[in-house]
Design a protein around this nucleic acid. Structure first.
Lengths: 250, 250
DNA sequence: TGACATGTATTTGTCAGACAAATAAGATCG
DNA sequence: CGATCTTATTTGTCTGACAAATACATGTCA
């Protein structure tokens, strides 16, 4: 029995991995066109379907994108920060929705991480950063906007705060943390219909940023998160009662 | 012209997205088996190949895994933190290797984020956490191990520190940050062959954690990062000289 | 000549049907 | 009762085909 390679992983996965490493260590440069699918198929000695499955795996990770036609093909895609942050927060929301992370943990994390982030923001914020924060807050203060729009503006506000730290890595990481809280914030908002408190705290954050007061920023952040936690508890109670009382379960 | 849906995205992608949201909001529970590929194909009115491409996209995100045979099929997979962190740090590494993030930014980010993280660790660390940190440091101190093994132990050390904060969200986020630094650390190590300094600082971190001294932790972290930055600059210089002097380019 | 329509080749997207490989469960035989 | 064999089911891969998008050349008409 001469050691037949006991390969457990499928060919398409192996090819996907090979292509990925080729991309990562630069044998295929960003923007460059990969060989056509037929070419790859014959090169690897497999069928086009297999190659396609491999390419789709990479496409799911935003590593390649494809166009049809002549001058089309599969291209190495340089994922933008947005795309990456998106897939990060997708993963994070997944973890949250599967219950692998509870709210206390997320809020704690945000307290610690965003705390540091704001400190950096106080040091690095340029006028245009402050301007963006202000703009988001204005949008949030518009009367009569929907919960959805409010939440959207909320995210924009916090993202702007993060941007003020002027650091790509932090942006990358904090977007995720913020995004992970969105479903919860949404739920809180739909049960606890009080936006004034949130806006008041946001205004405190903004003015603290304008004055570059690190201490004030930290205080305001803690207020915000405390408020969020408490509202969340309230919302949970209301929700539990609502599910008990009316019509029936289902 | 009766508004034929001008869908730009491919069918397989649409199906993948649909399946993903079905998974995320719980219409398919974790561990559950999806319908067979034939079943899905006829249900969506597409061919099996298309379904498979959709499933492979999800597989690339660790959302499903497949087994053959009867009682086999495509199963909803609950991604472990490790799997998620892995795919994300892959993304982060890519960003770094493409030069979208520079080292100052990453080190700054780590200073801020890991600083907060260590503060939490000092409060929450349980004996088994400390034990894991210690074990990683022991591995790192073994004489004669390769650069690669050293770097591996280095990552394990920092992960253990992060774990000590005992917070899933932070773990998720910090693993990514740490991982993003691996290629750089590797490069530094291969040029600046001095491990003593790193180990000395690591020991300071460990003992500070054991004594739950937040201030000491912060000091040691800053030392470590300062040292890393300086070594990196040195390594860059050496590298530049090396690339100028011998034989030729390429 | 120049602008516009038209064809044509190339490449991905999708389809249909087939066989190979793995594997769990039932059938068979000692 | 236990070990082995068969069988059915399901994913993995192959083959060959056609549809759709689209860059480029070609031709047509003013």
């Amino acid at each position: 029995m001469p050691e037949e390679p006991i390969i457990k992983t499928s060919i398409s996965k192996q090819i996907a991995d090979q292509l990925r490493t080729s991309i990562i260590n630069g044998r295929f440069k960003t923007g460059e066109r990969l060989p056509t699918e037929d070419e790859l198929a014959s090169r690897y000695g497999v069928s086009r379907a297999t190659i396609r499955e491999a390419l789709k795996r990479l496409a799911a990770q935003n590593l390649v994108r494809s166009r049809r036609g002549p001058a089309g093909g599969n291209f190495v895609n340089q994922p933008t920060h947005e795309e990456l942050a998106e897939s990060l927060s997708g993963a994070a929301t997944l973890l949250v929705s599967l219950g692998s992370m509870d709210i206390e943990e997320i809020v704690d994390a945000r307290r610690v991480l965003q705390g540091g982030c704001l400190k950096l923001a106080a040091q690095h914020a340029k006028p245009e950063h402050v301007q963006k924060v202000k703009a988001a807050l204005v949008r949030q203060k518009q009367a009569g906007i929907s919960d959805e729009a409010f939440c959207h503006a909320d995210v924009a506000f916090h993202r702007a705060l993060v941007d003020a730290a002027d650091n790509s890595m932090i942006r990358f990481v904090m977007y995720t943390t913020i995004e992970a809280l969105v479903p919860i914030t949404n739920m809180v908002l739909s049960y606890v219909k009080d936006r004034h408190e949130i806006i008041a705290i946001h205004e405190r954050l903004l003015s603290a940023l304008e004055q570059k007061r690190e201490d004030e920023l930290e205080i305001a952040l803690n207020q915000l998160l405390d408020y969020l936690m408490e509202s969340f508890r309230l919302a949970q109670i209301q929700r539990a009662e609502y599910q008990k009382s009316p019509s029936g379960s289902n």
